[in-house]
Computed example of a mutant assay.
Amino acid sequence: MSIPMRSTYPVPVEDLVPAARKLAAKTGGVPSQNRLMKEFRIGKDKARAVRLALIEEDATVTGTHLHTVPDPVETAPETEAELTHDEMPRAAEEGASPQVTPPVEPVIVADPPKSEGVPAAALPEPANEPTRGARPVRSWPVLLLSLPAFIAVWSGWVGLGELTGFGVVHPLPGIADGFTINTAITLPIGVETYAAFALRVWLSRQVSATARRFAGWSALGALILGGLGQVAYHLLDAAGVTQAPWQITTVVACLPVAVLGMGAALAHLIHERPSENGEK
Rank of each mutant, 00 (worst) to 15 (best):
E39Q: 11
W246V: 11
T101F: 12
K46S: 08
V153K: 02
P171W: 05
K44T: 12
L52K: 15
W246P: 03
W246C: 03
A258P: 04
D111K: 12
G28F: 10
P119N: 13
L147W: 01
T60F: 15
Q247I: 10
R138L: 11
A198H: 01
E129S: 14
A238S: 13
E279N: 10
V251S: 04
G178Q: 05
A49W: 08
G240C: 09
T131M: 12
K280T: 11
G216V: 10
V201D: 01
A127F: 14
G156L: 07
E116G: 06
A92P: 09
N128G: 13
K44Y: 13
V73L: 14
V30E: 12
T164W: 02
L83K: 08
A244P: 05
G227P: 13
V169R: 06
P245M: 05
L199F: 03
R200T: 09
H170D: 04
V11F: 09
E125I: 09
L163F: 04
E57D: 09
I42S: 03
L160T: 02
K114E: 02
A81I: 09
E39R: 08
W246A: 09
E93W: 12
A122E: 14
T210E: 03
A239P: 02
E93S: 10
L172A: 07
E74I: 10
A232V: 08
L160F: 02
Q243P: 04
A120H: 12
E39F: 01
T164R: 03
L16A: 05
A19G: 05
E80K: 13
G221M: 02
D15T: 07
K22T: 00
L220W: 07
D45F: 11
I270M: 10
A238G: 09
